[in-house]
Simulated assay, not measured.
Amino acid sequence: MQLFIITGASRGLGLALTELALNEKHLVISISRTNTIIHPSHFHLSHNLSTWKGLETKLMKAMGKIDVKKVRAIHLINNAAAIEPIGEIQDFDQTEIEKHIALNFTTPIFLSRWLLNTFKKKTCPVTITNISSGAALHPIINWSLYCSTKSGLKMFTDCLNEDFKHRKNFRALSFAPGVMDTDMQATIRKQSKQKFKNVERFKELKDKRQLLPPDKVARGLYDLLQSPEKVDQTFYDIREM
């Protein structure tokens, strides 16, 4: 039995990962504002991930319901993220900026710290997977915040691997899921050309059915996590697996 801690689990990739892990008879702690899955092995934490306040208390309460001695692998998957605000930085509201950075960057760091502290005595495989993007590697017009937070999260992932080289049971991964058919893509397609100059390209991906289904991406990541001894990279892209 393995333990999966998944953020942004109410839809898209997070929901697909939650359903897959439960179908494979694992335990799941999911963190999102809403929940549609009722299952005896599913512990849902209702929380707005743009703030860390109160989340650690909720996590510890959920851990109190789990027999950690029976867990043979632990996975934290930082999946929750926002694409908005899109546009030019001078047009963004300060609160929008703060919430975006907290959700996409700060909260995954806090969760990683919590995981490493909570399970520092466990000898089973412990993996932190930060859901990444091509935007972590290349600048995209009008996506200054998204590109910056994804790039920062990738660097944080790389640093974790450097810091914990001595811990043989630990890995940190950046996982790029490609362009998926999710609500985030729908949000991108709704942008005006004035706000996002490349919007037509994303509409074309949908029209030509070139968006990946979340359940297929979830299976690719799940299979990767099942063979930690074979993980020899810090960055994986579903399109190259």
Score class of each variant (00 low, 15 high):
45 L>G: 07
26 H>V: 14
175 F>Y: 15
112 S>G: 13
150 K>D: 06
91 D>R: 13
137 L>P: 02
109 I>N: 01
147 C>G: 05
216 K>G: 08
229 E>H: 04
199 V>M: 06
41 S>A: 08
90 Q>V: 03
6 I>L: 14
186 A>H: 06
13 L>C: 02
1 M>N: 03
241 M>V: 12
55 L>R: 00
39 H>N: 09
180 M>P: 06
120 K>Y: 03
68 V>E: 13
69 K>M: 12
155 M>R: 09
221 L>E: 02
104 N>C: 01
138 H>E: 11
232 D>P: 09
225 L>I: 06
68 V>F: 13
34 T>G: 04
240 E>M: 09
112 S>Y: 03
134 G>A: 02
62 A>D: 14
200 E>T: 09
65 K>R: 08
150 K>F: 01
239 R>L: 11
57 T>E: 10
92 F>C: 08
135 A>T: 09
61 K>S: 15
237 D>L: 07
7 T>L: 01
22 L>K: 15
77 I>K: 12
129 T>C: 01
153 L>I: 05
221 L>S: 04
59 L>M: 07
83 I>Y: 00
54 G>M: 12
193 K>W: 11
103 L>T: 09
80 A>K: 06
179 V>Y: 03
147 C>T: 08
32 S>G: 10
137 L>T: 03
201 R>H: 14
9 A>Y: 01
210 Q>G: 05
76 L>I: 09
150 K>R: 02
220 G>Q: 14
171 R>S: 08
65 K>Y: 00
144 S>D: 08
24 E>T: 09
86 I>F: 04
236 Y>F: 14
8 G>I: 06
63 M>L: 14
98 E>M: 14
202 F>E: 03
223 D>Y: 06
137 L>N: 00
16 A>P: 13
191 Q>I: 03
94 Q>K: 11
181 D>V: 06
202 F>P: 10
37 I>T: 01
90 Q>S: 15
44 H>P: 09
